[in-house]
Design a protein around this nucleic acid. Structure first.
Lengths: 187, 187
DNA sequence: TTTCGTTTTTATCATTTGTTAAATAGTTTC
DNA sequence: GAAACTATTTAACAAATGATAAAAACGAAA
């Protein structure tokens, strides 16, 4: 997905403000398997996915648990770094060869203080991520594993086609064995 | 908690900008049991809790599930209404007699477009809520019910003292019977 | 195609949580 | 304080999920 569309999908900006953001963006290609973010590190950039797919995961004891997937158009952000300049808890791994737009957090924050349009763009960006996070939270709290799997299948069919089921299972909050059983019961 | 402190805890504002927000705020007292937000309704205000405690809940089949608690200093927001002008899915009930600061969403949004300091305050507001939501999400996905209960006990002991256990149970994503068992096993 | 390594499914048993109902404890009202 | 109501705990059984191991299916590479 093109950067103009990604920016405007969040909050339509006048050309002048959009150019300010675009001047700070660098395009990069990175291979499948690349670890974009490392846990316990303050990340200095955010990214937008032009092409490809990625996941965020963290460790609980020995187990790695995936809690986010992103595809074309999605932002990749270590929220703790972005919001509070603190170490994040997540690794982010590219699951396919990816083309990314990189944006330095420091430069973006400077723009927030200089341009009211961009400040409102940043507000909307956080608000939209918040809505998504709330919806995930409620799905996790309200629905059974089977319902969550069916919802994922319906809303993000591409995830299940493009990603290992072990990652999907931990994303759903269950073991891979449990996901296999659910899939067997549905057919 | 006083409104100046609530505002500045989110993002410190110069007096002039803070006054603009405060001019739009009305103080209200409402009794225990009052339903502040109704599900399937577009809410037109957000609130901050000066004194008291509240919960947000929604229905899954017949069951009412609590997914948020707020006490002194916390914002009360129907995010779908606030962000997208859409119907929310939650009721909000006051669990004690409350003193609230009310702020019309429409007036705040006007300020976002006029004052860059307030726009950045609104950005920070969403960002901080986002961090909280992510932390809840991860706790729900990573931890067992027992761990989540212990964490609540540690981080928000006042909730468990001030709120019915049936609400706490649904907040933890388990039944009340299950919570009773967990409590019995811990002692 | 065959082989090797990885992913997914199946099987078995243990543990956790849900469901329903009854018992106990706690609160409010008269 | 007794009665009525509400909240919490306990009990018994059912259902869902976890853990471990083995089998089957799938993919990549020779």
């Amino acid at each position: 997905m093109e950067i103009n569309q990604i920016i405007d999908n969040i909050y339509p900006l006048p050309t002048k403000s959009k150019d300010l953001i675009k001047q700070s963006i660098i395009e990069t290609k990175l291979p499948k398997g690349h670890i974009l973010f490392k846990a316990n590190k303050v990340e200095t950039s955010i990214y937008f996915i032009k092409k490809g797919i990625a996941r965020a995961y963290a460790y609980s004891d020995e187990n790695e648990i995936t809690f986010w997937f992103g595809k074309e158009g999605a932002p990749i952000v270590s929220m703790k770094s972005y919001v509070n300049n603190e170490k994040g808890y997540e690794d982010v791994e590219l699951l396919e060869d990816c083309e990314l737009y990189e944006l330095k957090i420091e430069q973006l924050q400077k723009l927030f203080l200089e341009d009211i349009e961009i400040a409102n763009w940043g507000r909307k960006f956080a608000e939209l991520e918040l809505i998504k996070s709330e919806e995930r939270l409620i799905a996790l709290q309200f629905n059974t594993a089977t319902q969550r799997y069916l919802a994922l299948l319906k809303n993000y069919p591409s995830i299940i086609q493009r990603v290992q089921l072990s990652h999907v299972a931990s994303y759903l909050g269950i073991t891979q064995v449990s996901l296999s059983r659910i899939r067997a019961n549905i057919k």
